[in-house]
């Protein structure tokens, strides 16, 4: 039986039990989200800036700005706390949100939009996806 990667302590804090390899997975994913937020040409940008109301030619700029700000705040907070042993609820939520954004952006970037496409995917990409899924599965259990 594998040990839990995140544990909710009695004082309410969330203990991060990731080894350095696990933290590296988080670090790479979070840094990529931060970078994509600042680079319009980044392949992840389409996922980060999906339409809010597809019936409009263009979404409300205030809403898209709010989305960019919130996504960026989460990613920056996750990056700031990447080496912490304990996370509070807000920090854990920032980790979960940013890892989830990274997971979906990774899948979109490699065209993994259906179960069929998943089964035919490159092994390295599948490993990346599975690592993120494992982390998300574990952190969702304690958030």
């Amino acid at each position: 039986m594998t040990s839990r990667l995140f544990v909710r302590r009695r004082d309410g804090r969330i203990e991060v039990r990731l080894n350095e390899a696990g933290r590296d997975v988080v670090r790479v994913a979070v840094r990529r989200v931060v970078a994509a937020e600042h680079d319009l040409d980044d392949e992840w940008n389409a996922t980060l800036n999906g339409p809010i109301d597809p019936s409009r030619d263009q979404d409300d700029p205030l809403l898209t700005l709010a989305r960019q700000h919130e996504m960026n705040s989460n990613a920056e907070l996750a990056l700031l706390t990447i080496d912490e042993t304990f996370l509070n609820d807000g920090e854990a939520w920032a980790w979960l949100s940013t890892l989830q954004v990274a997971l979906r952006a990774t899948a979109s970037e490699h065209g993994l939009v259906s179960d069929e496409r998943m089964s035919g995917a490159d092994e390295a990409v599948l490993t990346e996806v599975k690592n993120l899924q494992l982390l998300l599965f574990a952190i969702a259990d304690v958030v």
Binding site: G50, I52, D53
Partner: peptide, 19 residues
């Protein structure tokens, strides 16, 4: 609805609004 949609998108899920 649009504000909720933004929150869901920030959390990393694919979300839109429609009439």
């Amino acid at each position: 609805a649009e504000r909720y949609c933004v929150k869901v998108q920030v959390a990393g899920l694919q979300c839109t609004v429609e009439e």
